[in-house]
Design a protein around this nucleic acid. Structure first.
Length: 401
DNA sequence: AGTCCACAGGAAGGGCAGGCGA
DNA sequence: TCGCCTGCCCTTCCTGTGGACT
């Protein structure tokens, strides 16, 4: 392409009317003024938290619900409003929100304590201190805040699965040792059964109040999408049926509003890239394919070297034979690793990597017993051909295979 | 009924990088 | 600079196990 035509392309883009009026509305962290279908939850949460306005510590709260059911949105909304009223009334109220699933931010006891302390205004290095020292600083930070402190721990299930519930136990007991401050916890979890991992004492003190968010049905999703679409798109830019298709596709599976909104956004982006003036229904299918592809490819791209080599090995083997097991993967992996110029890891380690890849949804691995022939994982690839192609290309490029 | 396979997966610990405080 | 602490990745060693085979 010559420079002239590239400039033309940019100029054309600049002059073209966008499908979008305000794309922000479809981003993951956008907070609409009006949250649909969650009035009950908002009121319930608000009434539990209200005592904090009079300096009393509210009950600890446990919020459950699968992904994209509005847990975080509702919690942040209520906390925001609460904080505003408290500020107006000159009440001492501090709200700290952390997402425990964010890698490198809050996935270990040290990091969670450090993050909480920092949010409360104490300086803590990202590494180097003994864990009790960090906890001590967090405690001091709490003590410095007179009044009520509400700690919101989002995706708390991920944290507990990783570091156990000792930390949470300490948190639920922290009020006993504080003189000036009252602490209340809000735990948000995607996993409804995760309290199984917890000590009964922690379970009962954290779950003083419980709120459960049910998935949205297709009709509710449709209303939510309509609300967002009217702010996000210019008039007449959405073909009839696009929203129904998005809500039906997602609603039938899991009622995840975030996913439905993503689907709509990507469908619009793809339409725009193809110079369409409207979002057509068939772009919703294209969007779904693209989202899945990007998710898998990104997941693999972010894996460490040997995990990527394991993926490559599995893809390579899968062409030959439909049935592969851990042992076969390991022996093939050893050759491939050497070819890629690196020493292979042990089978124990690869076994863990295979498990991680399964959890990421890149591969399917199920433990099965073959009787006399032992117990192993049956590994299969359930990916579209174009995703496999893209992965192969990426990995061959990276390892010069 | 008992054996035995081919691993799964738990526990402990080594080595390294990043970072603190003295 | 040194000693110490942490998280992370990995190894070594180990026990556990579902079910086809004997």
């Amino acid at each position: 392409m010559t420079n002239g035509s590239l400039q033309d392309q940019f100029t054309e883009y600049l002059e073209k009317d966008s499908i979008f009026k305000d794309k922000e509305v479809l981003s993951t962290d956008y907070r609409p003024d009006d949250i649909l279908h969650r009035d009950e939850h908002i009121n319930e949460l608000a009434s539990i938290l209200a005592p904090s306005l009079k300096g009393n510590d509210p009950s600890n709260i446990f919020i459950y619900g699968s992904v994209g059911t509005g847990k975080t949105l509702v919690t942040k909304h209520v906390c925001n409003e609460l904080k505003m009223v408290a500020d107006d009334a000159d009440e001492d109220l501090e709200i700290v929100y952390i997402n425990c699933k964010m890698k490198k931010v809050a996935d270990t006891e040290y990091r969670v304590s450090a993050k909480l302390a920092r949010e409360l205004g104490k300086d803590v290095p990202s590494t180097g201190l003994p864990t009790d020292e960090v906890y001590e600083r967090f405690f001091e930070a709490l003590e410095d805040h007179e009044g009520v402190v509400i700690l919101v721990l989002d995706e708390i299930d991920a944290l507990i699965k990783k570091i156990g519930d000792d930390f949470l136990y300490n948190l639920t007991r922290v009020n006993d040792d504080l003189n000036n401050t009252k602490v209340s916890l809000i735990g948000i979890s995607n996993d409804l059964n995760f309290t199984d991992y917890m000590d009964a004492r922690v379970k009962s003190s954290l779950g003083e109040e419980e709120i459960i968010f049910r998935p949205y049905n297709a009709l509710q999703l449709k209303k939510i999408l309509e609300q967002r679409a009217s702010d996000a798109f210019r008039d007449e830019c959405l073909k009839e049926g696009v929203i129904s298709k998005c809500s039906a596709l997602v609603g039938a599976e899991q009622g995840d509003a975030r996913k439905a909104i993503d689907l709509l956004r990507v469908a619009a982006e793809l339409s725009e890239r193809d110079n369409r003036e409207q979002v057509q229904v068939e772009y919703v299918d294209k969007a779904q394919e693209k989202i899945e592809k990007d998710r898998i490819v990104e997941a693999v791209r972010n894996q460490p070297k040997h995990s990527q080599l394991t993926v490559y090995t599995i893809i390579d083997m899968y062409d030959e034979d439909g049935k592969i097991v851990t042992g076969d993967v390991y022996s093939a992996y050893k050759d491939i690793a050497r070819k890629a110029g690196t020493e292979p890891l042990t089978q124990r380690r690869i076994s863990d990597l295979i498990d991680e890849l399964d959890m990421l949804g890149v591969i399917n691995a199920t433990v099965t017993s073959q009787g006399r022939h032992g117990r192993t994982r049956h590994i299969s690839l359930d990916l579209d051909a174009h995703i496999v192609e893209k992965l192969t290309e990426m990995l061959e490029d990276e390892f010069h295979l």
